[in-house]
Amino acid sequence: MANDALALSEIDAFYGDSHVLHDVSLRLGDGRLLGLLGRNGAGKSSSMHVAVGLLPPRRGAVTVYGRQVTGRAPEAIAALGVALVPQGRRVFKSLTVRENLAVAGRRPRGGLPMLWTLETVATLFPRLRERGKQIAGSLSGGEQQMLAIGRALMSNPRVLLMDEPSEGLAPQIVAEVMSTIRRLKAEGLSIVLVEQNAKLVADVADDIVILNSGRVVVEGSAADLRRRGIDLRQHLGIY
């Protein structure tokens, strides 16, 4: 649908010979937060890689605000306002914190005001300001996560994909990251939150999709799933 911020339709994708996504369809509504759940290896990160152009699908279509981007280069998809906070953070380790942010800087599309700059990102994450000249590889895990989020915001995206932002972080840092996500959502950003932890997602998601072995096994609005009495944990193998 044209008012979807991001849609994957009937995607089949492979890593080499390994068939990682089977007929996967996901829709992220404008201004909504989609929680994407599943066990390790369920295809969550692969779906994100398809969305940003790192993994061209063998079949199916990817659209950003109704525009076909299937098979386009990652830098072209980034220019349409899609940003990724990747699994494992993947900050540019030999660059300083400031450089990590600066290289991702981009004006928003359609002459909108610059919401995110070095200044506003540093206000959101004061620790990044303190560490501005430090080499990113020397930051703690939590600081690298903030940097990865800040870097994604610097491109002034319309669609933010967050791949397991809580992974490997201490509980109080996870809480900090989750409150940032709530705030970004309140500002109107369309967000996909990939998680293994169902509880984190259940609190903030408007819609939920669960993947298992590269297939969509559950989908619906969070309220709908609650009404139907579906226990998310059951599908994640946590009893």
């Binding site: 830098e75 220019a79 450089e99 600066a102 290289v103």
Partner: peptide, 22 residues
């Protein structure tokens, strides 16, 4: 910034492209 973009491309070429660097 251009130099930083080149170094980012060396650190992690795939991620640099996702960030929008050509």
């Amino acid at each position: 910034r251009l130099g930083a973009m080149i170094r980012a491309g060396v650190d992690d070429p795939a991620m640099a492209r996702v960030v929008g660097i050509r």
